[in-house]
Design a protein around this nucleic acid. Structure first.
Lengths: 222, 222
DNA sequence: CGAATGCTTGAGCTAGATCAAGTGTTGTGG
DNA sequence: CCACAACACTTGATCTAGCTCAAGCATTCG
């Protein structure tokens, strides 16, 4: 039964599901799920890259630290997102749970081997990498914008990625947002207050946001 | 003779040459070479991504512009570098010749088709994308550093990538450097002057740099 | 040779950082 | 249920790195 595990895979192009299901749903890859408490490390910079990860629940930050302690959060990952894929043999950054999280582990070697014989798996690997690249470039573009533009873009991004509704909950503290946007927590806080004063958003609680006027934020997005 | 064009390709892992030769050296992909004058457009943002490109000579910048004219140069490409690979159907940025350049064009469709049947081509595509990703992330990290750190990192990067020697020629004007580093031309200029005052570098001409003390620059790299 | 273009230098100015209190909010032990 | 840490966030006052605006040099090109 598992003799030719991929024989019935969908046709080529359509096989790239938005959630990269092929990569993580195939029993043969031996995925296991683990739970992480808030702030627990999932992997560290420089460690051997043995797995590919998928967020089942919770949220994850991937970051790098400079020698003097400055930290850059390069991405947040939410349920359904795949992360930790490295072409090199070790992780270029560290990953931690932002909030309590369940993470699915998939053995990297199993995937790379499968991609040798199975074009759909190879395509999904390329797709995951390409999506990361698109994100990384957008993030780079963010970093040349003004504080208002960065915070607005961040809110819109999170809004779009979270289980929808006018209101949503930011899973991460201000420190993480600041390090993601290349700002200080004070500037993030002040900017959110400005948006609230201008009635574009409402902070029901410090992490609970209501987007009263998404288009006002979008207008800031140069 | 061209019946099984890839039958004699090198073994799997070693097939990923540093220059991605497989992608661009195979006659079947029908590569042609074109010349571009300084500042000529190679492709524009939003255009259909029909080709993959390789710099034969000269240099290329890839950039995006915000609605108000701010520009971010996301990468420079030097001889041997491959660029312009998109997973989506259109280019996410624009590419221009920084200096007169010869560019090899390879049909994207030919490559994607070849990658279906040839694992080595598929692997090189993944490797090219992964390298871009690594660059994009490093570039993001750059953008949170101080002006001195950014300029130092830029000089070291260029030094490493150019045909070596203590002295080397920057192919691009200050404007491009500034937009790559997220600084103004004035700040780039002042920072270079500082480095010259501290004897770390010598500007033989405004674009000709001698790295007297690379380790002084490296020390700035937090 | 003059004009255009690219680079440097100078003199303020300002967005965002830093330093320093507050003000919630959450959790813990009594 | 309250007290009191411990933590996360906000707000205020000041400072500064890098920006802006404005000249002045230096190359290159017609």
């Amino acid at each position: 039964m598992s003799h030719r595990p991929f024989a019935s895979a969908a046709t080529r192009v359509s096989a790239i599901s938005p959630d990269f299901e092929l990569l993580t749903n195939v029993r043969e890859f031996g995925g296991t799920t683990m739970s992480f408490e808030r702030d627990a490390e999932i992997y560290g910079e420089g460690e051997a890259a043995e797995y590919l990860y998928k967020v089942v629940s919770g949220a994850v930050r991937v970051y790098r630290v400079l020698s003097d302690g400055r930290r850059q959060v390069s991405a947040f990952y939410l349920p359904g997102d795949v992360f930790g894929l490295e072409l090199g043999s070790e992780h270029a950054g560290s990953a931690e749970a932002v909030a309590n999280a369940k993470i699915l582990f998939v053995r990297r070697n199993a995937l790379l081997e499968a991609s040798e014989s199975n074009g759909d798996v190879a395509r999904e690997l390329l797709a995951v990498t390409a999506r990361e690249l698109r994100w990384a470039r957008n993030h780079g573009l963010l970093l040349i914008k003004s504080a208002q533009e960065r915070v607005a873009a961040f809110l819109l991004e999170m809004w779009q990625r979270m289980p929808r509704g006018a209101a949503f909950e930011l899973p991460m503290p201000r420190r993480d947002i600041a390090d993601y946007l290349g700002l200080t927590i004070e500037t993030v806080s002040r900017t959110l207050t400005q948006f609230e004063d201008s009635a574009a958003i409402k902070l029901v609680a410090s992490r609970r946001v209501v987007l009263n006027d998404p288009s006002a934020l979008r207008a800031l997005n140069a």
